[in-house]
Design a protein around this nucleic acid. Structure first.
Lengths: 224, 224
DNA sequence: AGATAAAACAATGTATACAGTATTATTAAG
DNA sequence: CTTAATAATACTGTATACATTGTTTTATCT
């Protein structure tokens, strides 16, 4: 052994465009960059300590995630969503969540169902101790598991994208205590449907879940 | 009037990246670029007479349309779809087509329905004279009108993207004469459901339509 | 001859420079 | 003082140059 290179991990390299992309996306989703705000390439490049090239590419990625609006020769700005947009997204999400749940009812493995039950238990536990961060995370995990069980990458990808777009309105949902019991009921209903391999029932419950979610988000927007 | 600039139209400017994007997309969809083929930035730039910059941006756009695969530091290649991918896409498309049709049943205007009937009439006429190009175009128009009536841009956008991905397998569908009668029956069923504002019926017929379509595409792949 | 290492090459990643166009500020005219 | 024209500025669009990495070829050793 003459010389060994210190390769910690096979793949810890990330192109700058992805770093910039992640940074900007995070800033948008957490509200550090507000809707309508202009995003200038030079300015961002300076602030992030990179050149314009990766910034440009990151902006284009964000545009295709529907987080940024790009007008040729004018520039980019953080996309502002109208109520109509939100309704539209939820309409699609409804159909996809129903689809995912009904597929899950058909082909989720026993092991995965076990895991799902575990997540649900932790979810309800997190509610007991009022750990908001954890509640949100586990709710996401719950839906992720269902998506994963569909073994449909396209479906997962589209769904995730819709979720990202609604991310900014996510807090408003679970923050309100009164919505919690309904959500638990929905989750349990979905679990039951999966356990019984009842695809129709699963789709119905999922539909109700999103409908409930929709009304909540809309209400929270109106109260702003 | 001292000097007038010749601005033919308010907006006929297209960034080079979009020109490249359109060119490459067309080449992929029509099979001039085959799945698995490597796409090298320099080579493409030379061939198209532009620099690498717009080519890079176009490639990234294609990647987010799922037509090209991008591996960091390795390069781009035309994405090859597995049968599993096609099934997955059709699974999602099924849900979205059903959604779109049921919405159309609820809120398509009289004028639009009239237009839809017109398209269907022309469609059946094109079949009579066996004008394949026109048949395909009118089938697309039919579905586009339904999408438009949903007044849901997000839904339309996602659906179009799925369609693009299946574009390469589109011919195989309508080319086969025996499938035509079923398609006509489906279209007429959808028309009837819209006319009766029967959302449930619309979703059901749409579902059957896509299911039929799915089987056809799969069969044509297997016979290759 | 086969395998391994080194070097040459080719492609992507990133930065920068220049060109063209919107926008803003400034100045002149009414 | 308002408005229109013009100049200045700031931004995006595109090209190119350099850096880094992955791949292939060639040479050397067993």
């Amino acid at each position: 052994m003459e010389e060994t290179k210190f390769i910690i991990n096979g793949n810890e390299y990330l192109p700058l465009r992805d770093v910039v992309f992640n940074t900007l996306r995070d800033a948008i989703l957490t509200g550090k960059l507000i809707p309508g705000e202009r995003l200038m390439e030079n300015q961002l490049a300076d602030k992030l300590g990179v050149s314009r090239t990766p910034v440009r590419e990151a902006l284009r990625m964000l545009a295709l995630e529907n987080l940024v609006e790009l007008v040729p020769r004018k520039g980019a700005q953080v996309l502002d969503m109208s109520e109509k947009d939100i309704i539209n997204i939820l309409e699609v999400r409804d159909a996809l969540e129903s689809l995912a749940t009904s597929i899950a009812c058909k082909k989720m493995s026993k092991e995965m169902l076990q895991q799902l039950k575990l997540v649900e238990a932790e979810f309800e536990q997190a509610i007991e101790v009022n750990d908001l961060e954890r509640i949100i995370q586990l709710d996401e995990d719950f839906h992720d598991l269902i998506l994963e069980s569909t073994e449909n990458d396209k479906l997962s990808h589209i769904y995730q994208n819709l979720r990202i777009q609604l991310y900014r309105y996510r807090m408003a949902h679970l923050k309100v205590d009164s919505s919690i019991p309904a959500i638990i009921a929905h989750h349990r209903g979905i679990l039951r449907a999966i356990e019984n391999h009842d695809a129709e029932e699963g789709a119905t419950v999922a539909h109700g879940h999103i409908k409930y979610h929709t009304e909540f988000i809309l209400r929270s927007i109106h109260n702003k």
